[in-house]
């Protein structure tokens, strides 16, 4: 299976990689247990920085689409097809939307929500 990276595409290169690997899994081109090229190999073949490919692999591993088995290499996860359907970003967005709606109902302003969110994200303790 061939993978293509378009450097003129506004979509970040690591996202192009993720999308194509996920669509290959969904289409059944990549099956559970199939081996994937190493980060170095793919980066050199696509003339990309190895950090870009590593980031794509890291995010795919987090989503359980692929798994790394030490020195043996990277393989397609056993439940990759099911995990591809799960959209982490959408799930995060829906959770946040629910929380924001609750806060607005309680009368908290948007700027207060923004400040609190930024503080929580940076690990700052809540103000007393």
């Amino acid at each position: 299976m061939e993978i293509t990276i378009d450097i003129d595409n506004p979509l970040p290169q690591f996202e192009q990689l993720i999308e194509q690997i996920k669509s290959a899994v969904t289409a059944g081109v990549l099956k559970p247990g199939d081996s994937l090229p190493s980060i170095r190999q793919l980066a050199n073949d696509l003339e990309l920085n190895s950090k870009t490919v590593a980031k794509a692999y890291q995010l795919l591993t987090r989503d359980s689409v692929i798994e790394t088995k030490g020195y043996r290499g990277t393989y397609v996860h056993a439940k990759a097809k099911a995990n591809c359907k799960f959209n982490l970003q959408e799930w995060t967005r829906s959770l946040l939307s629910e929380s924001i709606a609750e806060l607005r109902e309680a009368g908290v302003t948007d700027s207060e929500i923004r400040n609190a969110f930024a503080g929580a994200l940076n690990g700052q303790p809540p103000e007393k």
Binding site: M1, E2, I3, T4, I5, D6, I7, D8, I21, A24, L30, S35, L36, P37, S38, Q41, L42, D45, L46, E47, L48, G73
Partner: peptide, 10 residues
């Protein structure tokens, strides 16, 4: 601009 690679481990 368009680079291709085979998604197979060598």
């Amino acid at each position: 601009p368009r680079r291709t690679a085979v998604l197979q481990r060598r």
